[in-house]
């Protein structure tokens, strides 16, 4: 089970995340694994693989919302970056961007185990 300290060391803004969950730590912490296992991570990887910009945008956008709500700052910043690039359909190296995002996710996941 992940702790607030773990999240802080990850770079999350736990103060804000907790406030959004009405200060209830248990609730907040319960949501972290849900965010980590969000199917949109996989959707993003698949659609980037296929070069489907629209599907990629939708997945990144959804992740951005979830990470933002939990104030998982590094994940939020990265998913925001990807979302904004995709919104403008900018030519970018989405595969490596996605890889960076997944690495962060995995780092957080290891803290949960």
């Amino acid at each position: 089970m992940i702790t607030i300290d773990d999240l802080n060391s990850f770079g999350a803004n736990t103060e804000e995340g907790l406030a959004r969950c009405m200060g209830k730590e248990a609730l907040y912490l319960k949501l972290i694994p849900k965010a980590i296992n969000d199917s949109n991570f996989e959707k993003l990887v698949e659609s980037v693989e296929k070069g489907d910009m629209t599907a990629s945008f939708e997945a990144a956008h959804a992740l951005k919302g979830v990470m933002g709500n939990l104030s998982l700052t590094p994940l939020f910043d990265k998913s925001s970056e990807i979302t904004e690039l995709l919104r403008k359909k900018t030519d970018a190296d989405y595969k490596s961007l996605t890889r960076e995002l997944l690495e962060m996710r995995d780092k957080l996941k290891s803290l949960c185990d």
């Binding site: 959004r20 969950c21 009405m22 209830k24 609730l27 949501l31 849900k34 965010a35 969000d38 959804a62 919302g65 979830v66 709500n69 939990l70």
Partner: peptide, 13 residues
């Protein structure tokens, strides 16, 4: 809302 995390936060509030 399709995202469980977002649903839960709103629901709790």
């Amino acid at each position: 809302e399709d995202e469980a995390v977002n649903r839960d936060i709103l629901g709790w509030i």
